[in-house]
């Protein structure tokens, strides 16, 4: 029996995955690599947000500042740590992102320690009822923020000059240079935006999970699955895939007894495997044309 409640819960969870998946897609489209550190960078953002809240700032302001700081962190990470690896073979670049992951994890442990903390919610605690399902304002807010973010991103990329510049640099960096575009700076912006998205994902999920250095690890796996399922270079695909994964995982977890909390992570991977078997390029991806 698939309850509306499960679908609602699934979309809420999926929205978190979607935010991080969007970050992964953004980085992949602009630099051609998968940033395994995206989740850890988001965790750093959340901790910074926590510290800001501790200083007495209202939550919404703290989150806003956090997003701005995330922009800077993302840009600096690209410029100082990742740029070196951008032309090289994907394997080395991936391992570089893992190294960044380790550094950020270590940084969190160093600055904030490993003990668990709590992050306050942006939204009121009350519960809302509709269609026979119940959701907290936090859940509703999460989905709304994610949907709004997607719309803003689409408008940004399709309608603004900076968006076009980013798409140009992502599509063909050498052509972009020939057109006079400062590709390096654009990549910086791309990573900065991705970090903002990651920070957003973190701040949205933070109220409902204990704050610890590894908090985003599982979400990263879901986000990776969603990004790949969506086709890796399609933002829309990533979001749809994330919601799908959220729903399937929640429904399967609730209805199939064998799946306990430890096997839930396997659900999106199985879903991914099944869909990729039939459609290797993902739901919205393009068939990879390898030139001879």
């Amino acid at each position: 029996m698939i309850a509306v409640q499960q679908i609602v819960d699934g979309i809420t969870a999926g929205s978190i995955y979607a935010a991080l998946a969007l970050a992964l897609v953004l980085v992949y489209r602009s630099t051609g690599l998968v940033n395994f550190a995206q989740g850890q960078m988001a965790a750093v953002s959340v901790y910074i947000g926590w510290s800001l809240v501790e200083t007495g700032l209202p939550v919404w302001l703290a989150v806003l500042l956090t997003l701005l700081i995330s922009l800077v962190i993302g840009a600096l990470t690209e410029r100082l740590l990742i740029r070196r690896f951008e032309g090289q073979e994907p394997l080395v670049a991936i391992v570089a992102t893992v190294a960044v992951l380790i550094c950020f994890n270590g940084l969190i442990n160093l600055v904030w320690g490993g003990s668990v903390r709590a992050f306050p919610s942006l939204f009121p605690d009350d519960v809302v009822s509709f269609l026979g399902a119940r959701a907290t304002w936090g859940d509703v807010g999460t989905v709304a923020v994610l949907a709004g973010t997607v719309v803003i991103l689409q408008l940004f990329f399709l309608r603004t000059r900076l968006g076009l510049a980013l798409r140009t640099a992502a599509d063909n960096p050498s052509s972009a240079r020939l057109l006079g575009l400062p590709v390096g700076s654009l990549l910086l912006v791309g990573w900065g935006l991705a970090a903002v998205l990651g920070g957003l994902a973190g701040c949205l999920v933070a109220p409902s999970v204990p704050l610890q250095p590894n908090m985003m690890d599982t979400i990263l796996v879901y986000a990776l699955a969603a990004a790949v399922l969506g086709g890796l270079d399609s933002p829309l695909g990533a979001v749809v895939a994330a919601w799908l994964i959220g729903i399937v995982e929640t429904v399967a977890g609730a209805n199939i007894d064998v799946i306990g909390s430890d096997l839930r992570i396997a659900v999106p991977l199985v879903l991914l495997a099944l869909i990729l078997l039939v459609r290797p390029q993902g739901l919205f991806g393009h068939r990879d044309v390898e030139r001879l």
């Binding site: 190294a99 960044v100 992951l101 950020f104 270590g106 442990n109 160093l110």
Partner: peptide
């Protein structure tokens, strides 16, 4: 330890 290890890697 973890941070230094990450730096060594980089």
């Amino acid at each position: 330890s973890y941070l230094i290890f990450g730096i060594c890697l980089l």
